[in-house]
Design a protein around this nucleic acid. Structure first.
Lengths: 350, 350
DNA sequence: TTGTATGCGTTATCAA
DNA sequence: TTGATAACGCATACAA
């Protein structure tokens, strides 16, 4: 995948193509052809070898500006996350960078924590001539604010949009099923769902999955869809509503770990115990959830892996723009920890 | 700070200088002069106004490659962190991006979690012609692997190096003092320190501060310097050593929250209670430490603010390379939570 | 105050 | 298989 000879630590970034050509005694264009793997075959092997050696020796590294100006490509990928301080994203970013680096690409990261910023962020990236975009911010329906007929490769991570787009996300429906099955096994029958923003594919899919699976269990789905964002604050608000219900649920399946954390807060503020009074499950298994009090039972998604896949996808499309839209799905697993437990005997009979 | 007219959402990135010049009926060079604030005064105000209007209208955005090729500057800053999944860093990154964006700069982020990668990462950034570097990875002594006579502006964040470099970091000595004073107030006399890597300025300064402050209190400093990195694993190893001591300490001041988390683990594995048996304090107050079990008492450092300062500094040096090395210091504060408590009566009398 | 000419380092087209 | 040449979009020294 490394598409160019890697210069080592010498005086990088000053020596130019002319220099290596002169050293070998050939014309610049010959050197150019050799240094580009795709055109290397046009040059006789011995000359090529000498040029390669000279390049390595001088520590040649192509000037990215000249390269970009000519080729209109930057070997740069833009990554947009909705909130870098949400621990789910750093592992994804790391996964992305891992494979990008390997291929000689560089990542430009933007944190669009204000929805209004997304358009601006995307414009900025386009003006930087990124070769592609990996978005963790996409909302359902309206395709990533890119469009406009322009053909910038886009891969969605942890999100899918209706339009034809490449994406990598987990099987939300399965994830929710895992959580519900677990609750049911523990004896819970009255289970609520704190749903994420319905304009995100995850929020929507998890809520839909909840309703479906609950019905399959012959249980009545109680859904709270109020959450405007995946945040602890929104989780608190939602949980207060849940606890206000006539027949208070004994278990709450959350669409996200942060939301579940909000539930913890409300339980504590009401003097209720988790899981003794109410069982809570999260979604994502972000770093440190095992450290919380209680350690959180949650649906694990392979964040790092998803990042790697996303990067691989974007690289694929760049290489072959005709690549048809695929949606890679990864499999979530349930991680049982301390926030879920057997249902307690209710005061009011059965 | 915004140094260029900002194009709005129109067809960004295709229209070039020639286009806007032609639309107004002037030569490219005139348009160029107007679009660059520094040379705008050379052009008559009315012509300038028309050009600006045309640029805005067409959604002109300079081609970064052509610009870079000419000016040798990229309006790009490289950020290198040692570990993006350590929650201390995302807030810093966000702070940095905030002010960078404002100034029309873009951040390239690299996670050098393997020390060996640092050199490679830096080479890569240099080959991308970044205008400056913000490093959270610097180690004491050997200046950031940049050097080599090249004059790439560098700002260190959360680190200082011996050489003349710009940096922003917190007052580690004060932070440690806060933690020790707190422990002493709670009645602790036998206090250990789990130190960070001694080749990082934070690890070194905090350990040195620990010894100094303990002496000022007339207490014997017990230091464990074994940690090779700021990780939970290293914290566990260190804590096992601490517990192996003859006269087991009643309090442990850690150089970092992750290290403290390792202590939690060992305490639990030994059946000891925190803070009843041993009080633990961390350092950084990274997101979610208030959620841990027990909620962690730690030294807070203003991560977001530090990021903003670092970005401001790098922008300053870029504008004026003669800027002398300054080291901006921010003030840490102690956040008391549940991992520290009054010393218990010891079994073996006084 | 404005226009002309040149070059930044690279790739691609065309000849040889 | 290799060399010469032009062009990518912009900024600037110089001329007008």
């Amino acid at each position: 995948m490394a598409q160019r000879a890697k210069p080592r630590g010498k005086p990088v970034a000053q020596v130019k193509l002319t220099d290596v050509a002169r050293k070998v005694g050939v014309h610049t264009s010959t050197a150019s052809r050799v240094l580009n793997p795709a055109t290397r075959h046009m040059v006789s092997p011995d000359v090529a070898a000498k040029i390669l050696a000279a390049a390595e020796d001088l520590g040649y590294s192509p000037n990215p500006f000249a390269l970009g100006l000519r080729t209109r490509r930057s070997r740069t990928i833009g990554i947009v996350v909705p909130d870098l301080t949400n621990p789910v994203f750093p592992p994804m970013v790391r996964g992305i960078e891992n494979v990008l680096d390997e291929a000689g690409f560089t990542a430009i990261l933007a944190d669009a924590h204000l929805a209004a910023q997304e358009r601006q962020v995307l414009d900025r990236m386009k003006s930087r001539w990124v070769d592609g975009l990996i978005l963790a911010t996409a909302t359902r329906g309206h395709k990533p604010a890119i469009g406009d007929g322009e053909q910038l490769p886009v891969v969605l991570i942890n999100r899918v949009a209706d339009g034809a787009a490449l994406s990598v996300c987990n099987d939300d429906s399965l994830g929710i099923r895992l959580a519900i099955d677990h609750m049911v096994e523990l004896g819970h029958r009255s289970i609520a769902h704190i749903a994420g923003p319905q304009d995100t594919s995850t929020g929507y899919a998890r809520a839909a999955g909840f309703v479906k699976v609950m019905k399959q269990h012959g249980l009545e789905p109680r859904v709270v869809v109020q959450c405007q964002s995946y945040s602890e604050e929104e989780g608190r608000t939602a949980m207060r509503k849940v606890l206000g219900e006539q027949d208070r649920p004994t278990a709450v399946v959350c669409a996200n770990d942060l939301l579940a954390l909000g539930c913890y807060d409300v339980l504590r503020e009401r003097g209720l115990k988790c899981p003794d009074d109410v069982s809570i499950s999260g979604f994502n298994d972000m770093p440190f959830v095992d450290r919380f009090n209680p350690p959180m039972t949650t649906v694990h998604i392979p964040m790092f892996e998803m990042g790697k896949i996303a990067a691989q996808l974007i690289l694929d499309v760049i290489q072959n723009p005709a690549t048809k839209a695929v949606s890679r799905t990864v499999t979530p697993t349930l991680v049982v920890r301390g926030s879920t437990g057997p249902v307690r005997a209710k005061r009011k009979g059965t």
